[in-house]
Structure formats: structure tokens, C-alpha cells
Simulated scan of single mutants.
Amino acid sequence: MYEKSMTLLIGLYYLYHKSPKQKKALQRAFVMMDFKASIMPTRIGWTRWLPHLDRSLSAFFKGYRVLVYQLQTSSHDNAKAEGFAKLATDGFLILYLLQLKAVVSMLMRLSKYLQKQEVSLADAYSRVAVTMKGHVTLKSESECLIADVEQVLSDRAYDGIELTFRGQRPQPVLEKNVDSVIGKIEERFPQKDPVIEATKITGLNNLP
């Protein structure tokens, strides 16, 4: 699922980045469907991959209805657009992307907090603990905690676009992804460290 997700997100960026015709067609579609601004697909990857992925997922879902409309319209004479239209309406893939967005959004909030100059070491570790707790909750509640996922399962559609569910549903990957994220966070930010405990006295947020 991850590979299919990256194929879709990267492919959409290059489809509209390299083709002025497709880009103009998408911009016209946003105007026609009464969007205040065009929400173009954004690039993922680079060194700061987390904010790029978060931005790409946000743009994809905010402009989803227009994207799918334009892709389906262009699919008659553009094989790439036809392929991306099928991926974008794959119900199982949309479910995966919504779950991925929930995980990435939590990590983005942590990343932005840690970049603040006034954050102490103790404050940073406290926020890391909160983020880990949030991921544990997300895993325990599973997909029912994500409103959009629950809606897709109920309506078999997203933002008014009917989705296609081919074959059997893949094994749930949310729990596996969250476990992997928590493991990586624990490796980088070990919680039981006497030095970290000692620095809590310097954190204003830790005062009674």
C-alpha cells in the first residue's frame, strides 16, 4: 500500500508540474467547481520529508474532488491520468492514506514544537511522551478514531466521489505503522534517562 501511495502522490505532482496543459486544466476545474484557490499537488521527498509528505497529503484530500474529476476527464486521451484516476478512487488506498495522514499529522505537530528555540530538553521529552501516548491511543482505537475513515467505510465514498473496493480488504496496517513509529521515537528519545529527569527542574512547564 505504501508503494502505491507514493506512486500516486509523486505521479500527481509530476503530471501537473511537467504538463502545462494538465496544470491549466486542473486550475480551470478548481474555478468551475467554485474553489477559492487552486490546490495543486505538491512534491514529496527531499531531506525534510515529513513536512513535504504532510503537505502533499493535505493538498490531495483538500482538492480530492476536483483532482478526481480532472483525472477522469483527461483519462480519455491520457493513459497516465487514467491510471492515477483508478488509484485515486481505490477505496483501500484512500483508507490507507487517511490513516497515514493521521500518523503524519501527529509527528508534524511534534516536529514543529521541537523546532521552537525556547523549548527546554525536559519540555521536549514531555512533548515526545504526549505524542507517543497519542499514537498508542490511535492504535488501540484503530480506524474508528479517524472520522474520515469511518465515513468512507460507511458510505464507500470520499468527498462525494464513489470509491471502488476490489477484492478482499488488505490486512490492517495502522497498528503496524504506529508500532514502527513508536519504536523509532523510543530509540531516539529514551524516556527513562536520569539526565533527562534531572533537567525537568529547568522546564517552566513542569513547575507545579
Rank of each mutant, 00 (worst) to 15 (best):
S142D: 15
R156A: 07
E141K: 11
E82A: 12
Y158R: 02
S105E: 11
S58H: 10
D77P: 02
Q117Y: 11
V68Q: 03
A129L: 15
Y113H: 14
S120V: 00
D77G: 10
K80C: 07
F165E: 13
R156V: 00
D90Q: 12
Y125I: 03
Q115M: 06
Q151I: 05
L93C: 06
G91R: 14
S56A: 13
K112M: 12
T47I: 12
D148G: 05
V130I: 12
L98A: 03
W49R: 08
C144K: 15
H135K: 04
D77C: 08
Q115N: 09
S105N: 08
Q115R: 10
Y69G: 00
K80M: 09
W49I: 01
E118V: 02
E175A: 14
V104M: 09
Q151M: 08
Q70I: 00
L107N: 07
Y69C: 02
F84T: 01
L95V: 03
S120R: 09
T137F: 01
L98F: 05
A124L: 06
A102F: 03
E141V: 04
E82P: 00
L145K: 08
K116R: 15
E118C: 05
L138V: 01
G134V: 01
M108R: 13
D159A: 08
L121C: 06
G160Q: 07
L50S: 04
L93E: 06
K133Q: 13
L95C: 08
L95A: 05
P170M: 13
T47S: 09
Y125K: 11
F165I: 07
E150A: 14
V66E: 09
Y64E: 07
D123S: 12
F61Q: 03
F84G: 00
Q168C: 04
K112L: 14
S56I: 00
L100S: 07
D155V: 02
D179T: 05
E118I: 06
I94T: 03
P170Q: 14
K133E: 15
A88Q: 12
F165N: 09
L110F: 12
E162A: 12
T137I: 03
L50H: 05
Q115V: 00
H135D: 05
I94N: 06
A81W: 01
L107K: 08
K133N: 14
V136R: 15
Q151P: 00
L163I: 06
A122Y: 06
Y158Q: 05
Q151G: 01
H76G: 02
Q151A: 08
T137N: 13
V68T: 04
F165S: 09
E143I: 02
D155S: 02
N78Y: 04
S105W: 10
N78M: 04
E162G: 06
E175S: 13
K86Y: 09
V181D: 12
N78T: 03
K101N: 07
V181A: 08
L57C: 05
E82I: 00
G134Q: 14
H135Q: 10
T164Y: 11
L50C: 00
Q117F: 12
K133M: 10
A157E: 10
I146F: 04
T73F: 13
D77L: 05
F165L: 04
P51G: 03
R127C: 09
L87H: 10
A102V: 01
L110N: 06
L100H: 07
P172N: 10
M106C: 08
S142Q: 12
V104L: 07
Y125M: 15
V149T: 11
K139N: 07
S126L: 11
